[in-house]
Design a protein around this nucleic acid. Sequence first.
DNA 1: CTTGCAAATGCGACCAGTTGCAGTTGCCAT
DNA 2: ATGGCAACTGCAACTGGTCGCATTTGCAAG
Lengths: 148, 148
Amino acid sequence: MSCETETAIALRDAGQKVTPQRMLILCTVRHAREHVTAPGLIEEVRRAYPFLDPSTVYRTLSSAAALGLVSETDMGAGDTEYEWIGKDRHHHLICRSCGDVTSLDNSYLDSLATALYDELGFRADLGHFAIFGVCAPCRARSGAAAGD
Amino acid sequence: MSCETETAIALRDAGQKVTPQRMLILCTVRHAREHVTAPGLIEEVRRAYPFLDPSTVYRTLSSAAALGLVSETDMGAGDTEYEWIGKDRHHHLICRSCGDVTSLDNSYLDSLATALYDELGFRADLGHFAIFGVCAPCRARSGAAAGD
DNA sequence: CTTGCAAATGCGACCAGTTGCAGTTGCCAT
DNA sequence: ATGGCAACTGCAACTGGTCGCATTTGCAAG
């Protein structure tokens, strides 16, 4: 089964229509080598179909996020990034000092999800987190790291 | 020491000026009974000082967040909420189904912060998280809860 | 008290994202 | 094949937030 078919089925199963625009948008997200921002995505899909309206892109992304197909992550500074949710979930650590973004394996949040479920009955969608802080190199560089 | 004095000292220590506008904005956030949105805050401070410009509010909130005085939390649907960071940190569980927002004690994220620090050297600012998912009542109501 | 400097403000322009509406179209039933 | 309905699109208006610039002002030094 091709990835396009999978996408179409997911939309149809959710009672939504499969339109050429939506397929173009979602397949572009799916095949992006890294995270995409909405403006970047708009620019890219309009290369293939110049008449595609930005509001359609935003609406499609919003629907896809609600369906759990795509993650929406606030990376700070007003940048919301989108990524296709594959089988592997991961998160990001963002350094406030140098701006470096590194990946964080999902296992770190697994125990949190388990605790929320076991103790509170809350099934958390821990799809994609951007965790802000200060990275090890910056802490070492600032010299105040000893105070932590 | 009054809370106003504390706020003034925090600003001054960070090399920033203590202006009447900023004091009004930050004290309004500090004394708000619940979270405030930027538009709501703008409306409230302009009741006291109608000439206060919205860009000043956004700038002040941004500076205060960078200083760790105020938390910025994306509550979904484009709503960013601000809250004064007191001694007790807490987080929110937001149900995608019914929209209910409940508080989550910080202890749930303490072990995550510890793991990030011990294993990766990353000092996380886990100031305020909005965790999306489905709450226990909604899961029970949907009947599909057994499949989890 | 005066001066100087850099942070802050207000204003208006700009940008990104949202929303309502009229028209279009996917998809299902007949 | 036809009809109906509701989801979707495109468009334009709107809202919220950002940014550059000129002016103002807090604050420290003399």
